[in-house]
Amino acid sequence: MKREIEGLYAGAATRGIAWVIDQVLIVVTLGVVAWFVTTTYGLFNIDLQNCEASSGSIWYYACVGARFGLGIFAVAFSPIYFIFFWTLSGQTIGDAILGIRVVRLDGKPMTIPRSIRRFIGYLVCFITLGIGFLLMLIDDQRQGLHDMLAGTCVIYAWRGEQDTQTVARLQNWMTERRRPAGQEPTANSKA
């Protein structure tokens, strides 16, 4: 049995996978940029990890500038990445792969301030050791703390279906486990 899920609230697993993909992309991008800058500087015999070796020359300042720039890029890339994509289409690359989209609860387009608010909510969730993310397991709109702060939610944006048979099977299994010993199984659990 299948159930169409397009337009419904997306759950934690899908969003988590998308987030992991985004993080991988961010890390890869940061690594590639760092590798590119380091390699480029290496052509000029400048080691970015040891700028003091070329102290006293102009290369020293170039080395320090590159290290500072890389640091700023590493810090700023992640928020820019998320804010840019959320504002542009509501989908980061990971979200697009998993077919989910961040939208406002009132159905209007995402804006930069709202995306910034959502990213701040991300940070708050991390600070609270992920408790803010767990809210989406309980909330009826599957909103995490960051969604609540920004007034957003995440929906499935693809014409897919959910395997309700598997869900039903697992539900029966859990019901059986929770059933006290000696009690007759219900008609649903038998099925």
Partner: peptide, 22 residues
């Protein structure tokens, strides 16, 4: 493949919630 991943992820959404509630 992507569709399969999406479908499985969507099913997992519900399963995780059920586990958490359990």
């Amino acid at each position: 493949v992507m569709e399969d991943v999406r479908s499985r992820a969507a099913t997992t959404d519900t399963l995780i919630e059920m586990f958490a509630r359990n």
